[in-house]
Design a protein around this nucleic acid. Sequence first.
DNA 1: AAGGCAAATGTTTTT
DNA 2: CATTTGCCTT
Length: 731
Amino acid sequence: MDVSHLLDSLNDAQREAVASPPGACLVLAGAGSGKTRVLTHRIAWLIQTEGLSPYSILAVTFTNKAAAEMRGRIEQLLALPIRGMWVGTFHGIAHRLLRAHYQEAALDQNFQILDADDQLRLVKRVMASLDIDEKKWPVRQAVGFINGQKNEGHRPAHIEDYGDFYLKTHLEIYRAYEAACQRASMVDFAELLLRAHELWLGNPAILKHYQNRFGALLVDEFQDTNTIQYAWLRVLAGDKNNLMAVGDDDQSIYGWRGAKIENIRRFTDDFPQARTIKLEQNYRSTSSILKAASGVISQNVDRLGKELWTELGDGDPIQLYAAYDEMDEAKYITERIRQWVNEGNLYAEAAILYRSNAQSRVLEEALLYAQMPYRVYGGQRFFERAEIRNLLAYMRLVSQRDADAAFERVVNTPSRGVGDRSLDAIRHLARATDISLWQAAHRIVDEKQLPGRAVNAIHAFIELIDALDKETQGAPLPKLVDTLAEGSGLRAQHEKEGGERAQTRLENMQELVTAAGSFNPREDYTFSEPSDGQPSVSLLDEFLNHAALEAGEGQGDPEEDCVQMMTMHSAKGLEFPLVFLAGMEDGLFPHSMSMEAPGRLEEERRLCYVGITRAMRQLYLIYAESRRINGKERFNRPSRFISEIPKDLINEIRVKQTFVRPANQMRSTFAQGEVAGTNLKLGQRVTHARFGEGVILNSEGEGSNARVQVNFPDAGSKWLMVELAKLDPIA
DNA sequence: AAGGCAAATGTTTTT
DNA sequence: CATTTGCCTT
């Protein structure tokens, strides 16, 4: 078969990777070096020249989006649908395995997936039952502990507390939480992975089956794998070692979520025969942008080391703008975008990237004011919205009465007179007699264990769910959702609320009806194959599982031409001709919570690298000399990352106009705080021999070590040693 | 048990 | 500043 079309369009390194002989292979793929191309071509190559059946290929990604894109591109490349091939996320694949082997995994057939919110609620409840004070032991920390341990593959039994009170308490919570999950057959995200791993370790026959089946494994974004994911891959790879890992250590930005950048380094230890291939030619950005990115990332130690290069030429320099404040920053960005569009370009080619979601507000206002279309990505996802989760809980309850998480969520939503005391009683009974909340509620009603009013309220809820179940028997999915939205009283609740927010919630619920209508499990790649002859779950249950695993990013009109706004985290993997990195200030980026620890600072730096390398042609860095953060005026220094970019690549933009402001406005904003051990204070106007007149924005140190940041109309803001700079205060 | 007002609290988030 | 939490009152 002629397969030249698979290799012709590739460069040498890409070709080497695509056509590499069977065995372990590590592909270090720099930003914009065509890694998805390599992965898809590799799969096509395996099928067309190595003679592998699609059935024997497993490709793992981190996001549903990436999985869907990969599947689409392979089918395009092969010009035929690929049946039998497993392409999915780690979690999706683990889920599928557990469904197929639920007995060996010690789960009910109808085990339920807990998403992050369900998990938090459950841990909270577990802690309450253990009488652990939430004030002293933050729930989020306990959840973090549990997930952290699971990500490392540790069960409570594996953990030694060494008498440490912190460990001891968290271990107690972990143990109780695990018991609660097992009792109700609930599985959180980390558990999916851990259990899938244990499934194989504990069932050699099953493991052997999959080892035999999968002749080739491929992993995308390998730098983001955590310990258990990597262990899972190694076990599956078995003796064949036919594993291709594609990743970029410089783009590891999820360490705080358990990702182990070390896995990349370990790979060549674990697979000594592994070939390592570096993809260093970048097809995305101009040379200036790549050099800037390289300048920043080279400050990190212990990199595997890649040097990106391009044939696209230098391009424009990096533009640096010192904004007066966050409003000026936003205004400046809109002006540049206006110019960009006036030159005949699209809004959609421009992206504004920032470190934290809170920054989007001011930017949005400016875009709104400038009447530019925009779209904010990230933030709250569809299936995570409260109204959607409430409705899903009703659906779950109609399907499975014993779903405790769902019961707890909606038994009093909308409020129907089942308060904390009643709920406590139900929980106690359930725990004492080892039954579900639903059964406990039933018994309390039957035996009238509570005051009449409470019993009536609980009874009403039980009747409601039973009635809704009866009413929706055999109904198509969208009809069922619609009936529940109405019958639960959720719709009425939001209608009563009134206001724009409530209106959006109603629309979202309607959207869920629509989503249920277009839901087709056969199209869902995580279940595209009948699960080995096991009895299938109901369409409703399948929809609910789908909702848990896929948070639902796919709404909105991606076709619309609008400015793209998102965090730098969400921007990973994307590219834009024109990129603005907003809020380039120490404290914001790198974030103050990550500035101290060297390891975390390096991750921030990698995030900066990711941000810079999103840009194809033009890159703007903007910092604000003053910024309102949480209602307080802050005077941050320009981000240290800016100074890590070679000076000759940067073009500093000065707009003097922004400093011509009424003096009284300046005073009122700045006048507070003394610079200890000097005759200066913040907001003070001073003159400097060379830079002229300026205003003191910020200071650090005291006495002879004091440095002040002075904003000069012409020279911009400078950090000066008070002792050396000879600043003269002016009244 | 529900609703209202003061106080506390602010990263990033593929599943 | 803006949103969520928690206490307090009906």
